[in-house]
Write a protein that binds this DNA or RNA. Structure first.
Lengths: 194, 194
DNA sequence: TCCGACATATATCGGACTGATATAACGATT
DNA sequence: AATCGTTATATCAGTCCGATATATGTCGGA
């Protein structure tokens, strides 16, 4: 799924600026299973405009840089829906420097190992917080993504959010139950082979 | 973490060809939390050779294309260890087309939703299988990654593998418990708004 | 028995994407 | 007053993926 398709999907929830779209992938609805950087979002929106799949209105704000508020066209909506039906989803891919580094725990000081595990836990704690739609700090947020016109959360979004939450919980539980054991093992390991 | 560092890490477990390194990221020890394609591995190995961090021996095999078996140099080992101690790990990133698509479950036929969920489950089942080091089909595999010289699995690797397993289990459990509920909700949703 | 599919093995390259940087103005914290 | 973070758009160098090419062997099925 290229960034153009991702942008179309993001705009299915209503109008948004490029900056707001990035936030959906950074903090918002999509944050735990997709990413897109500004460096790809802006060119994508330009291309989509040229292709007639989105339009934008320029909002001049006082004492602020201009805003381009993008919106799906009918053809954009149709194109996205068609893509949904036709696309074979690519393989899931999870990248984690921390887990890669922990693979070599024997080769580093135990304090570093512990710090890496703690950071991993902290990030998942944060993620778990970001996923929960009720727990969001933004009460009167302008665009309530993942909800329909009446403000009801959409079943698909709930399912995906729940799944993310379950993954986070499992991760945190595993760390709670196995961190100390690993550190002990490493101490033994190092005592045997200095 | 760039592919060069990833290759150095892969070679910490012993000598390997470029093709074998890719397999570690495709099927092997690193498969559930890092990826690297051949298109980046081969240039990386060339660069590492130029920089003196790895060396290779060309094995001519009968009736087979030549093999370049790479190995860390002492400087390569030192460089990797230094990188381990100095690198701030990048953010974890998880990309899933399937979860993105499921976000729009309301917009597609229920059969497609179910097929996507089933595929998601199947992939995680497979991954769970790949992670388990005891369960590996390759009994006399040439290089036993993740183990020390005596064949004992390394604590760091076990921890990371266990974590991966826990995530898979949680995912599969969530799907078992929530798939039917989602499909029912979607049917209601569609009945109300045709 | 032949054919296609798959595995081993290296190499290259176009196109897509990330991450950094530039610009600009404001509020908040130090 | 100075630095930092936030809103907002835009560009670009460098990195990486995915596809493709090349060469050869094995294995299962029609």
């Amino acid at each position: 799924m290229d960034v153009r398709t991702l942008c179309l999907g993001a705009l299915m929830g209503g109008e948004a600026t490029g900056y707001e779209i990035r936030k959906m992938f950074e903090d918002g609805t999509f944050s735990h299973f997709q990413i897109a950087s500004l460096g790809s979002i802006y060119p994508a929106l330009t291309k989509l405009t040229q292709d007639g799949l989105v339009t934008f209105v320029e909002h001049e704000q006082e004492n602020r840089p201009d805003k381009k508020v993008y919106q799906l066209t009918q053809e954009g909506r149709r194109t996205f829906l068609r893509t949904l039906l036709q696309t074979r989803p690519a393989e899931d891919r999870y990248r984690s420097d921390i887990l890669f580094m922990l693979t070599f725990a024997e080769e580093m000081p135990i304090e570093l190992t512990e710090a890496l595990i703690d950071e991993f836990a902290a990030r998942h704690e944060l993620m778990s917080h970001q996923i929960d739609p009720d727990n969001e700090d933004k009460q009167g947020s302008p665009s309530t993504y993942g909800r329909d016109e009446n403000g009801n959360p959409k079943p698909g979004c709930c399912f995906v959010a729940g799944l993310g939450q379950a993954m986070c919980d499992a991760t945190l539980k595993f760390i709670r139950e196995n961190k100390q054991g690993l550190l002990d093992e490493l101490r033994n390991f190092k005592a045997r082979k200095p």
